[in-house]
């Protein structure tokens, strides 16, 4: 019983852990940052200012309104993204650009803070409660017209200086999807894929195996308890299960099969001989409905 309890606790812990992880993994990501924009992107006011891109890696739209943006780790509520602007809705696998010019009068996508081009910058997206950091980055000092971010969109592990500046566009430009390219570069023989994928397949079926081992044991105990009660045997006494022979099972299966196929020894209906009458009617006769072919004399 102790083992069963431990097993159940383990499964619950795995569930909670996985559920918590999946919620975090589905949040927004700072995908690309440019702090020293000299000859690059021009905003709607005709200015070249620092900017950063927020990416929605999920398959569902995400509304960023109510969340906070900050460049100060001690002040997480620096810029609140106001509600009621259609811009704040980020479509699946799409991005939203924020201009950092310390002037919010231009719209919701203009932050009230700027970024310093000569030193490293801190940037964070903070959830609507102002406490939980959704994503944060420490952007190194960047040269003129260079951007930094995820080489493969949404992949935090691939953050580095980017070879191309791609505001509001895919960071990785290639014929293959970014995930495919990663496998192509890092797993040429498919060994990594085989190991990881087989581990996942085994884990999934191993979890099922453990669960049903436990459930099976519980079911056997319940059945035994019922058998004890039915036999009127006191608790603690072992009741040996009655062995049923294969022939009995075969007979039951045959009977069920015959029942399902509606085959039986005595028929429910009565077979009789009855004369079939064909009543002739000129109304249904072709000869009276079709013109006869004229005959040659």
């Amino acid at each position: 019983m102790q083992n069963i309890k431990k097993g159940l606790l383990f499964i619950i812990a795995v569930f909670i852990g996985v559920a918590g992880y999946s919620q975090r993994a589905s949040s927004l990501i700072i995908n690309e940052v440019q702090t020293n924009n000299v000859n690059g992107l021009i905003n709607k006011n005709g200015e070249r200012v620092a900017w950063f891109e927020v990416y929605n890696p999920t398959a569902a739209p995400v509304n960023i309104s109510g969340c906070y943006l900050t460049n100060d780790s001690l002040n997480l509520k620096k810029y609140r993204i106001i509600k009621g602007d259609h811009l704040t809705k980020i479509e699946p696998h799409q991005r939203l650009l924020f201009y950092c010019n310390s002037d919010t009068r231009n719209g919701v996508d203009y932050t009230n803070f700027g970024l310093v081009d000569s030193t490293a910058n801190y940037l964070a997206i903070v959830s609507a409660n102002g406490l939980d950091i959704i994503d944060e980055v420490k952007v190194p000092a960047l040269g003129e017209d260079i951007s930094w971010g995820c080489i493969y969109d949404g992949d935090k592990a691939s953050r580095a200086t980017l070879s191309h500046v791609t505001p509001n566009a895919l960071n990785y430009i290639g014929s293959e999807s970014s995930a495919e390219q990663k496998f192509k570069e890092n797993d040429q023989y498919g060994i990594g894929m085989a190991l990881t994928a087989m581990s996942v397949v085994f884990t999934a079926l191993l979890c099922l195996f453990i669960s049903f081992k436990i459930i099976g044991k519980i079911a056997i105990r319940i059945t035994a308890a019922r058998a004890r009660r039915a036999a009127g045997v006191p608790k603690g006494t072992k009741v040996e299960p009655v062995e049923t022979s294969g022939e009995v099972y075969a007979a039951i299966a045959l009977a069920l099969s015959l029942h399902e196929d509606n085959d039986h020894d005595y028929e429910e209906t009565v077979l009789t001989m009855k004369k079939v009458e064909k009543r002739y009617s000129p109304w249904s006769s072709k000869i009276y409905n079709l013109r006869e072919t004229p005959k040659k004399n």
């Binding site: 087989m198 397949v201 085994f202 999934a204 079926l205 099922l208 195996f209 049903f212 081992k213 099976g216």
Partner: peptide, 14 residues
């Protein structure tokens, strides 16, 4: 369900 260890055979064949 009766013999859960057979699930692992299904995993291995993948």
């Amino acid at each position: 369900i009766a013999n859960p260890k057979l699930m692992l055979v299904g995993a291995a064949a993948q």
